[in-house]
Write a protein that binds this DNA or RNA. Structure first.
Length: 493
RNA sequence: GGUGUCGUGGCCGAGUGGCUAGGCUCAGCUCUGCAAAAGCUGCUACAGCGGUUCGAAUCCGCUCGACACCUCCA
């Protein structure tokens, strides 16, 4: 269904600093590239937030009927510890520390990454290319940049000439930096450098003799620079110019700035129409940092096995918590915040369960179509998921009111309500109803229904000791009974 | 030091020149055998100080404060 014809999407473009109306290069098709992880350690929740933001973008665009090619790379080589020549490739360093083959590092943390994303119900990207799988493309790209005069070779390494580039192009166009300021503020790094200027960055690094990850090239046996892989792979799979490029805020400079420079230097075009940057996740008001221990891994949060949180939280509750903030805002992960999200999430899920059994009326007292459009409006406005969730709670109110018979919906409108809620909650936000996915739920509900009937009998006989005993003991094992006009229902807490 | 983002009610978090999201918490009421759930109602905020405007939390300036980036980072 081509719903996109009816919707006007606005995206906050880092390049312009404004919300812009989104127009894909080819009608109905979207090319989207998001910088994936460097697989040298376990992903943490900050990573999860960024990728989740773009997962929701991907899901929404697909829902609208766009054909989206979503490319998210795996950086498995070339990402240096720092910019000095002594800087070691992150993967190589980890391999040396753990005394294993670099590709074992890559394998281990790629698997971890995929496991975590599966747990959080991510949609897989269309293509997930690796840096090591595109060495040839990267070498070709470097050759072009050298040919065009924007890079130089020294001692087998190739560096991008930022100063030369800035003479005719704008280095800093994305991050709003001026080369002048960078020159004055670049910190002196230890170790001697082959670079002509500290602002120059590596396109190809000659490998030291002990370096295991190495490939032959016209300049030396070595490995590609980090910024290069994204340019090579985005060009290969999305073309010289594509629609959306996403990533974490922290990649804006220098990584994304360098991507633009490389593309301009090699091909002569700015590669991306819309740059999107997801903001950081904090833990208890402070930046997540491995060095200070202020960090929590997904499995620690899901198992409750950590020192920060009072209990374990399910993946959907974390997803819901993240979606309650706009992707461009800093979000603070706290126990109180997660507990509040858990309650809200459960209320939403209870309402969805209630919704399935609602009775239609002959007339509608609610303007369901205008409510439905407000859901789209929320997402159209730079993927504003918190507003969408506010609208979903409007629906919760409607559902309860219809159940209480203070509002009515025709069968046609009731279908619209159901479809819209299900689309936005499950397909677009990617939430999962935990009760639904529990195995054996049918048998469980059968058993609970028996207890509910026994309790009804007891209540009819005014044997409240017995009825309360049933209620309280079910509550103790996490089953909560709810008495309503239409009888008693239950939910799992 | 430079660049950028931001300061919203008890908490979390949207929004943005006039119609003032939502969640959680709290209080009251309705319903109920009692609870819970649900519904209804209440708590009316935008750091401070100036300015622009008929009107600003929203625009401009200053002050104070927070954060990010400038070195690898989602």
């Amino acid at each position: 269904m081509q719903r996109f014809n009816d919707q006007i999407i606005k995206i906050y473009n880092t390049l312009s600093g404004k919300k812009e109306i989104f127009k894909p290069i080819n009608k109905g098709y979207i090319g989207m590239y998001v910088c994936g992880p460097t697989v040298y350690s376990n992903v943490h929740l900050g990573n999860v937030r960024t990728f989740m933001s773009f997962d929701i973008v991907f899901r929404y665009l697909k829902h609208l009927g766009f054909k989206v090619r979503y490319v998210r790379n795996i950086t498995d080589a070339g990402h240096l510890e720092n910019d000095a020549d002594s800087g070691e490739d992150k993967i190589t360093k980890k391999a040396r520390l753990e005394q294993i083959e670099p590709m074992e590092v890559v394998q281990r943390y790629t698997v971890d990454f995929h496991n975590v994303l599966n747990t959080f119900n991510f949609l897989p990207p269309s293509i997930e290319p690796t840096a090591t799988g595109h060495i040839i493309e990267q070498i070709e790209l470097i050759s072009k940049i050298i040919e065009n005069g924007f890079a130089y070779v020294i001692n087998g390494s190739v560096y991008f000439n930022v100063h030369k580039y800035n003479e005719t192009k704008d280095y800093g166009i994305l991050s709003k930096r001026k080369l002048e300021d960078l020159i004055h503020n670049t910190r002196e790094l230890d170790g001697q450098s082959d670079k002509k200027n500290p602002q120059d960055f590596a396109l190809w690094k000659k490998a030291e003799p002990q370096h295991i990850m190495r490939w032959p090239s016209p300049w030396s046996d070595g490995f590609p620079g980090w910024h290069l892989e994204c340019t090579a792979m985005s060009t290969k799979y999305l073309g010289e110019k594509f629609d959306i490029h996403g990533g974490g805020m922290d990649l804006k400079f220098p990584h994304h700035e360098c991507e633009i420079a490389q593309n301009e230097a090699a091909i002569g075009v700015n590669p991306v129409n819309y740059w999107m940057h997801a903001n950081m996740l904090e833990l208890n008001g402070q930046r997540m940092s491995k060095s200070t221990g202020n960090t929590v891994n997904p499995d620690e949060l899901l198992s409750g096995n950590n020192t920060f949180f009072s209990k374990a939280f399910s993946p959907s509750i974390i997803r819901f918590f993240i979606a309650q903030a706009q992707y461009r805002s800093v979000l603070d992960l706290t126990d109180a915040g997660l507990l509040a999200s858990e309650k809200g999430f459960n209320r939403l899920m209870d309402a969805i369960k209630t919704m399935e059994n609602l009775k239609a009326s002959t007339k509608s007292s609610i303007d369901i179509l205008s409510w439905q459009q407000s859901c789209y409006n929320a997402m159209n406005d730079d993927f504003n998921s918190p507003i969408l969730i506010a609208q979903l709670f409007e629906a919760v109110k409607y559902i309860n009111q219809i159940k209480e018979e203070t509002e009515t919906l025709s069968s046609e409108d009731l279908e619209i309500l159901k479809n819209t809620v299900n689309n936005f909650v499950f397909d677009i936000l990617g939430l999962e109803n935990n009760a639904k996915t529990n195995t054996g739920t049918d048998k469980l509900s059968g058993a609970v229904d028996v207890l509910i009937r026994l309790r009804q009998d007891a209540r009819a006989n005014k044997d409240f000791t017995m009825s309360d005993k049933i209620r309280d003991e079910l509550s103790d094992v996490g089953i909560q009974l709810k008495d309503g006009k239409e009888g008693t229902t239950f939910s799992l807490s």
